[in-house]
């Protein structure tokens, strides 16, 4: 089953007098349960592409279909709601609300979705146990290590039961041990629960773990490698 279908996606920035073709016709299909890394040098269009997939920016032309919804056609307020219901985000940093505990951070998204209190508390606890933080549910982000914070971010991303999780350089601020732990945990979730992960990364360790590696350059896909597990 295809989770994401991208057809002839183009993005042109007209911010200066010179036109910048950030994305030059991208075609891509991602299926449920994939563990994909998007790589490419700076200026390759990686960030722009990720913004499009995450519904944070709109394309100049082309289609992005996520789980049956053409997101390029959604109004900005509908798009916010679409992100809330369908996409789990893990950013490089500043993922969590510093004044909320780990448990509250995970609950927050579900509250926005209108999940009732008892149900969301239980699910938030379960998710934090699943990411290995069952004993830190009442800690605020400042009391957690970088790796632990990213685990909370993953739990938060999963809380909304998204169509896929978009992770933008999730390991950029982590040491190698934390990176290894985080990646193993995500791989485990991918295997066991068929959660679709899409990473954008520079990190070779992430690339090594990925089952599919898509390389961008000059706004185009120049390679799309699938590894046999």
């Amino acid at each position: 089953m295809n989770v994401i279908e991208v057809k002839d996606l183009k993005k042109v920035y007209n911010s200066t007098e010179v036109k910048v073709n950030a994305l030059n016709g991208i075609d891509l299909t991602i299926e449920k349960g994939e563990f994909t890394a998007i790589v490419g040098p700076s200026g390759s269009g990686k960030t722009t592409f990720l913004n499009m997939l995450g519904g944070l920016d709109s394309p100049t032309s082309g289609d992005i279909n996520i789980g049956g919804t053409e997101i390029g056609k959604l109004s900005s307020s509908k798009l916010i709601d679409f992100r809330l219901q369908n996409i789990g985000f893990v950013f490089q940093a500043y993922n969590l609300i510093p004044v909320l505990t780990a448990l509250e951070n995970v609950e927050f998204i579900m509250q926005m979705q209108g999940v009732d209190k008892k149900q969301r508390q239980q699910r938030a606890k379960d998710l934090l146990i699943q990411v290995g933080l069952g004993d830190r549910i009442n800690s605020r982000p400042s009391k957690l290590s970088g790796g632990q914070q990213q685990r909370v971010a993953v739990a938060r991303a999963l809380a909304s039961k998204p169509t896929f999780v978009l992770a933008d350089e999730p390991t950029a601020n982590l040491d190698s041990k934390s990176t290894e732990n985080l990646l193993s945990m995500m791989e485990e979730l991918n295997k066991q629960e068929k959660i679709t992960f899409i990473f954008s990364t520079h990190d070779q360790r992430v690339v090594n773990k990925a089952h599919r590696v898509i390389t961008l350059e000059d706004g185009k896909i120049i390679s799309d490698d699938r590894k046999n597990e």
């Binding site: 709601d81 809330l84 950013f91 500043y94 510093p98 926005m112």
Partner: peptide, 12 residues
């Protein structure tokens, strides 16, 4: 950044 993150994850 925090507000950007909140808006990205779906805070309208």
């Amino acid at each position: 950044k925090e507000l950007g993150m909140l808006m990205a994850v779906g805070l309208n």
